[in-house]
Design a protein around this nucleic acid. Structure first.
Length: 109
DNA sequence: GCAATGACTGGTA
DNA sequence: TTACCAGCCATTG
């Protein structure tokens, strides 16, 4: 089962995400210039097994439904910034947009 | 070719 | 803070 061109593009972007950083479904769709968040999510559901899927989360920082514990373990190992409760990613600091440019994300505690 | 589906998003209550 | 609603689009049946 070969991935569709769109799926292949999505997977390529995800594999480029550096450790300790995350992106949203919407960001990927915006970068590809086609499809939408729902479409990206569908691709991840079918082909995400081979990529760091835990670095792709929802716009509000929520972890993947049904895989929260597993994603949390990766975040802890990569040093991904989390909120105080530890159930969501700190989007203000962890969000990555390296494909466009590297915005000065000031890491302030 | 048409209709349904989904690891979403932003706005409103 | 959480809950619900309508729009979104490639993929699948």
């Amino acid at each position: 089962m070969l991935p569709t061109p769109f799926a292949e593009a999505v997977l390529d972007v995800i594999e480029a995400i550096p450790p300790g950083r995350v992106v949203t479904y919407g960001d990927i769709a915006e970068f590809l210039g086609t499809g939408g968040p729902r479409t990206v999510g569908t691709v991840l559901a079918r082909y995400g097994s081979g990529v760091p899927w835990w670095r792709v989360i929802r716009a509000d920082g929520s972890l993947l439904p049904g895989h929260e514990a597993r994603a949390l373990a990766h975040y802890r190992a990569e040093g991904t910034p989390m909120n105080r409760r530890g159930d969501r990613v700190d989007m203000a600091r962890a969000r990555w947009a390296g494909w466009s440019e590297l915005p000065p994300i000031l890491v302030q505690t």
